[in-house]
Amino acid sequence: MKKKKCLPAVMTVLTAAACVALCVSVLVLYTQGTARRAAGAATEPIFTREEVARQMIWVGPILLAWLAAAVGAWALGRTERDLGRADQPLERTLALLRARVGLVPPEAEKERTLRRRIWIAGGAGMGLCAGWALLWLLNRENFTSWELERVMGEMLAHILPPLALGFTALFTVICLCDRSRAREKDALLRAARGRHLPHAAAPLKSVAETGRLSLVRWMLLAAAAALIALGVINGGLNDVFVKAINICTECIGLG
């Protein structure tokens, strides 16, 4: 039992240590490199193979220890995976209870109306935030400078606040709706006392294999084939090839 509890804790510490070690070594390399550059010539490289090798002397063993521990824990442990499985969704419980009581009590109905209003208000808030961010993003004037670092900085400064506000609004809506659902559950439980609980609620809507869907799919497949053919003709294929056979400096982070 102790072993079971100990292993996740050890692996958590090791994972955090490996992550911190990697981040610290990169930051040390960068700060030392920029200091060297500030003191010497502007062409002085920030990262050198020798410096990286020197850092790897202490970071490497930590990363290797983490890897060995991870593989060992996997090999020696059981594979009963905890994939972060969720609890029973509250909507399901509510659907079951609604089916049980038949006639939904007014308190429960009130909560459903309240939730609808919360979503409308939250949706309006999120829409405003999205509009705020989009207004900035869709203005071409904001993306004309060649100083990319400055452009990215400005972009983040302008779109992060509305994004953060939008997600805060979303989280608030979720939190308020959860509370409302809990209240509805209580109301339904009171109304359902003594009645038989059905086996399951009505199934949710699912994707149906309809003739219309099939038609849309075939039309889009034909469009895809046509686009690929047009792309081959207009030189798009060659563009992809040229980009892919040369080392992508952006992907690696050169510069």
Partner: peptide, 24 residues
């Protein structure tokens, strides 16, 4: 190629470390 690395690589490596740790 090490001589061409700079702030972009530093930032991307930090993102990579964060993402890998988060995936655990």
């Amino acid at each position: 190629k090490f001589s061409m690395l700079g702030i972009l690589f530093t930032r991307k490596l930090l993102i990579l470390a964060g993402v890998l740790a988060a995936c655990v």
